[in-house]
Design a protein around this nucleic acid. Structure first.
Lengths: 148, 148
DNA sequence: AATGAAATATACTCCCT
DNA sequence: AGGGAGTATATTTCATT
């Protein structure tokens, strides 16, 4: 899909603040609010925009820790794992990746016991490695519009 | 901070769609729109809500691949790395983590050459490992309100 | 594709409880 | 902490270019 310059300006603003009004976006990019609404609608329909998310602080929300967990699935266990993992609501993101590990996940936990219980549930599916997140260096940076 | 049941309902809705109007949220949770606005404002001020992001498809936006890159920083190179990495706009997320690797990043690339050039820029800072993202199993799932 | 105008809906401010 | 009223602003629809 072709995303033109104007749409990139809109996307850049929306990535920084998804709750901006169409009218406000229009003022900054020099379009009327119906024009902005139409462009956004089209980007939603084409799948350029997947959705609008609120970034909730996991610590403020009562979770003490976040972990990056990789899984190296046992033979024949990847598919069952992929079906099972959707049931675990602690999992914020989960990707299938290349390399020695097949899966990488970002998971939030109330405490260490919670983390321990989570890892225990995965032992039948594969070998796990857990990294605790110490701090955020970059969080959900907007995707830039062109070669950087 | 104490997030009560009503705020959790609001947060759950906002995590799924950040562009919902206060009026619509109010209708579903049984509050007036000024009351919803006030609660949201308070959660923003307290840092429960960090912001509102638009989820843009990196492929639709002209990026061909996404990679998970870990870095094991050389002695004394972690700090310089943390300062430098903010300049790279391809980096969508970057965390400091425990374990053998110090850093894990989620990075988007136009093509393999772009990825190659990126990795080259990191060699003075540490040892990198790159995993290409094959597919999304779970994407930005809302943080659940209680023990799961 | 975009604009302008009319109708509807929402947000914001203030006061009251 | 929330409701209600009044005003300002935004969204939506549609006709027009």
């Amino acid at each position: 899909m072709k995303v033109d310059k104007l749409n990139w300006e809109i996307l850049t603003m929306l990535q920084q603040n998804a709750r901006l009004s169409n009218a406000e976006i229009g003022r900054k990019v020099g379009l009327s609010s119906p024009a902005v609404a139409e462009r956004i609608k089209k980007m939603e329909d084409l799948g350029v925009i997947n959705g609008y998310r609120t970034d909730v602080s996991y610590t403020a929300a009562g979770y003490q820790l976040k972990a990056i967990i990789t899984v190296r699935a046992f033979m024949g266990k990847l598919k069952p794992f992929l079906e099972k993992i959707r049931e675990f609501r602690e999992v914020v993101n989960c990707y299938r990746i290349t390399g020695n590990e097949n899966i990488i996940m970002e998971v939030v936990f109330h405490d260490q016991k919670h983390l321990e219980g989570f890892i225990d549930k995965l032992i039948t599916y594969g070998e796990t490695r857990t990294h605790i997140v110490l701090s955020n260096v970059i969080s959900n940076a907007p995707i830039p519009s062109r070669s950087v």
